[in-house]
Computed example of a mutant assay.
Amino acid sequence: MEERRAVHLDHAPVNDAAYLDEATLLVAARERPGTGRRDGGVAAFSALTGDLRHRFRVAHDRHVRSYTPGALAFDSRCKVFASCKGRFNEYGIGVWDCTTGEQADFFYEPPGCALGDADKLQWLDGTSTLMAATMFPRTDSSFISLLDFRDKKNVAWSWSDVGTPASLEDKHVLHAIAMEDGRSLCVINQYDDLGFLDVRSSGGAGGVRWRSRSKLAARKKKAGPRGEETCYPKLAAHGGQLFASTNDTISVFSGPDHVLTSTLRGSDAGAICDFSIGGDRLFALHNEENVVDVWETSPPPII
């Protein structure tokens, strides 16, 4: 693989990055306190040259404000979304036109719905809604919402683990994705259990349907050196398959019953902190610096 020119936004720490298309890279960088400047924010760069194309500003009451973005997402109509935290409690989801870089909307955080801290955003084409998930340990409780940006902006569906029965209260949702069928969400907890939420039921009635998969973890989790970054489980859905990273392994599930069909384990470079699927390749980033594993993705098996 060819390494391309590195990009940065005021040398601020990066919270998220995503390819808008093969020629455009989006970067979300957090504001550095005490600088007195409007650094950080969201920007679009040329993926080939690294040149800055657009800087996405946030305005409230027609005044441009500094903000710290968290997670990124985009839809098929060239709208870019980012969870935003402003200096004056201006929390919510910012929306921009990816062609012009102009702000198109802002979904302010309603009571009991932690949008500004959301660490996972995903656009759902089937329902034209945006999934916003704020999860443990960023907050003490986990919140997942589906946001409708049409006419009257509203929360179309939401779920939280606040008030969970005592028998389940120690299970914290660490990551979430919307399944490709658009009817359910998949979540994973600190015990590497997979769970499913039906978004067709009001307010997540019935709660999470947990499926224990601890027996699938072939290796015990090893404690890393003191001060080493903690890597939490991550999920992805692609080509009808479900992918879950736990420790140094990525498990692949297929079919309507999500049967475990393969396990990927690469470099002995510590836990997998993040992974992404692009085209026919899967990329896994380890917590050991500068170690990335790459797999060619195979077509889903016939179940």
Rank of each mutant, 00 (worst) to 15 (best):
S66W: 13
T261C: 14
R4I: 02
L48W: 09
P256F: 11
A244Y: 06
D148E: 11
A223V: 13
G227F: 08
T100Y: 01
R281E: 12
T127S: 15
G266L: 07
G182K: 04
A223H: 12
T129D: 01
D97M: 01
F243L: 06
D75V: 06
Y67P: 08
L9G: 00
E229C: 07
C273N: 05
L194S: 05
R150T: 12
P300L: 03
A71G: 02
D148S: 13
E229W: 08
H60V: 15
A23N: 15
C273Y: 04
K171E: 09
D151K: 11
L20C: 03
A17H: 10
D51L: 09
S298I: 12
E288H: 11
G86M: 07
G227T: 08
E102A: 12
F136E: 09
E90Y: 06
V80R: 04
C84T: 12
Y232G: 00
K222C: 09
A271F: 09
V64W: 09
C231F: 04
L52N: 02
D75L: 00
Y19Q: 03
R62L: 11
H54K: 13
R30I: 08
S202N: 09
Y67L: 07
A166Y: 10
L130C: 05
F243K: 01
S145Q: 12
G204P: 04
Q241D: 10
R265T: 14
L282E: 03
R55Y: 09
W157I: 01
G224L: 11
S141E: 11
L185N: 05
P69H: 01
N247R: 13
A237L: 01
A23Y: 12
T24A: 00
S251R: 14
Q190E: 14
M135L: 15
L121V: 04
P111N: 06
Y232Q: 03
A82K: 05
R209C: 13
W96P: 09
V208G: 07
A44C: 04
Y91T: 02
F283G: 07
R219A: 04
G34Y: 11
C98M: 14
